[in-house]
């Protein structure tokens, strides 16, 4: 096991270096001049332009810039935003809880609905129920989520007035961000109605972000269940006359969960991609929206730093999933 982990970690470190080179060189290739953007329609004199470029280190040879950057990363310094002049790491951690909270809710939504739906579809295979669940899942899987979000806002918020339009909590509530998770903070604050408000703000973004993972998990659960249900030991258990619920609940489901867990792990990348769109639509103050804004503002430092942090996060999650998988299923360890 130890060698397995060390091997994975070594590969990861190598990949991370590759990621840093890519992120760094990408950003240098971006057209447009972030320094000139500082003055907008107003024209900047060439002398000032040169002076500011010098301050930002843009006049150094590219190799020197890269190693300066790498040195910074090792010290936890991912650069400073050109626009807001704040450290990228600081901004990232200010915004990350919002994205994390939304992602966790979306995954929970997907798992809690997707696994039962997949199990039912598998048990009632071929029935109308199965067909409608799988049909719905395929629609979810094919959904352009940015449109889905607009549609939900139009229906649920604008027409029915059931949920608020955007943001994380009603502005009436005001309390210190202890954990950064609005659901928890609103409870800690003890202000009545705060938790309810936070929940109502979360509903639509959760549905939108959770739709594709929900569809994927439902489909995956169904096929995993079907596979397990046809295995000999389940048939034996059935033949022995064990109650069907027991067979499904204990024997089949547990074994079917192995591929499903991997699928859930793989959804992390999907989530972050989805967060870009979901947060843009719902004005959710998280990483996704920050990135889109930064790309349009040519904020080199932010795009570069955020690409790195996000890639590192995804690699860590994948590693964790691999290890988890190795624990559940010892066969693949070697």
């Amino acid at each position: 096991m130890f060698r397995f982990i060390m091997g994975r970690v070594a590969v990861m470190a190598l990949t991370f270096v590759g990621v840093s080179i890519i992120a760094f060189s990408f950003i240098r290739m971006l057209p447009g001049d972030p320094v000139a953007l500082l003055s907008g329609e107003r024209v900047m004199s060439p002398e000032r332009h040169a002076a500011i470029s010098r301050d930002l280190g843009f006049d150094q040879p590219i190799i020197v810039q890269y190693f300066d950057y790498l040195r910074g990363i090792l010290h936890g310094d991912f650069g400073t935003s050109i626009v807001t002049k704040q450290p990228v790491v600081e901004q990232f951690f200010n915004l990350f809880p919002a994205t994390l909270e939304l992602s966790i809710c979306a995954i929970l939504f997907a798992v809690l609905l997707g696994i039962p739906a997949g199990v039912f579809a598998a048990i009632k295979r071929g029935s109308f129920l199965d067909q409608s669940i799988m049909g719905t899942a395929l629609i979810g899987f094919s959904m352009p989520i940015f449109w889905w979000g607009l549609l939900l806002i139009m229906l649920v918020s604008n027409t029915l007035h059931w949920t608020p339009v955007s943001g994380r909590i009603s502005l009436m509530f005001f309390f210190p961000p202890v954990t950064g998770f609005m659901l928890i903070d609103s409870l800690i604050s003890g202000q009545s109605g705060a938790f309810k408000s936070a929940v109502s703000h979360l509903i639509l973004p959760t549905i939108v972000l959770g739709t594709i993972p929900l569809a994927v998990i439902a489909r995956q659960t169904r096929s995993a269940m079907l596979e397990v249900l046809s295995e000999d030991y389940v048939r034996t258990a059935r033949a022995k006359g064990l109650a069907p619920l027991r067979v499904i609940g204990i024997h089949a489901l547990r074994n079917a969960m192995i591929p499903v867990v991997t699928t859930i792990g793989l959804q992390v990348g999907v989530m972050l991609a989805g967060a870009i769109l979901t947060e843009t639509i719902f004005s959710w103050p998280g990483i996704g929206k920050w990135l889109v804004d930064s790309v349009s503002r040519r904020d080199y430092a932010v795009i570069q730093g955020a690409l790195l942090i996000i890639a590192a996060t995804i690699m860590l999650v994948n590693l964790a999933v691999d290890l988890l998988y190795g624990l559940i299923n010892p066969r693949i360890r070697h």
Binding site: H161, P164, V165, S170, L171, P285
Partner: peptide, 20 residues
């Protein structure tokens, strides 16, 4: 309080709902 709301149609929704 400044509630940062980048999308104009969302701002309108909030205004209508009395949120701003």
């Amino acid at each position: 309080v400044f509630a940062i709301t980048t999308d104009a149609s969302v701002r309108y929704q909030k205004l209508k709902a009395g949120e701003c």
